[in-house]
Nucleic acid binder design. Structure first.
Lengths: 90, 90
DNA sequence: CCGCATCCCACAGGATACTG
DNA sequence: CAGTATCCTGTGGGATGCGG
């Protein structure tokens, strides 16, 4: 399992659990990520089939990201991690 | 959560789920890890309170590693990850 | 707004020889 | 057996400016 590798996939998935988000929204919501990393992670996650990218031909551009079923299915994992963290991290 | 960071903590924990193991056993059981990485990870995990190291003054030396309660508690996480992997990875 | 393009650095991780 | 010591490389990740 090297699919949630990288420092950011986890927080990004967490953010998208709450539903579709635009690029800028993600950039604001995901802790202290920077543009380059967000772009990079999103591309990788798209390639892995975890997120879907929808672009709208508006001015200025609108791009929405959401989780695929495969991405949504990671929720139980995240829940368990959070349970663990709550119990063992002060 | 940067505690299961690194490429190896996960497989190491997985191996130790089955019980106490000696250094060499781990080296054999954890896929293709090399000595340096195994030593390094074990030290970090010991510092994080995930594993316990027990050394015996024998010749040749015997060192056993096992999971702490905190380490054991990661089992549900691993279970969920495996469920997910089984479902979504061919 | 979205997201490339650059530049840069630290360090994770690999391979392997050596020691108590 | 259980590590330590070296050397080396790739790349993850940060900062920031530019363009459609």
């Amino acid at each position: 399992m090297g699919i949630i590798k990288g420092r950011w996939s986890f927080p990004i998935i967490r953010a998208l659990m709450n539903g579709t988000m635009r690029f800028k929204e993600l950039e604001r919501n995901v802790s202290s990520i920077n543009t380059r990393m967000l772009v990079k992670e999103l591309k990788e996650m798209e390639a892995e089939g975890l997120v879907i990218r929808k672009a709208y031909a508006t001015v200025p551009p609108t791009v929405e990201y959401s989780l695929t079923e495969k991405g949504q299915a990671l929720k139980p994992v995240i829940v368990e991690i959070e349970k663990w963290a709550e119990k063992f991290l002060q």
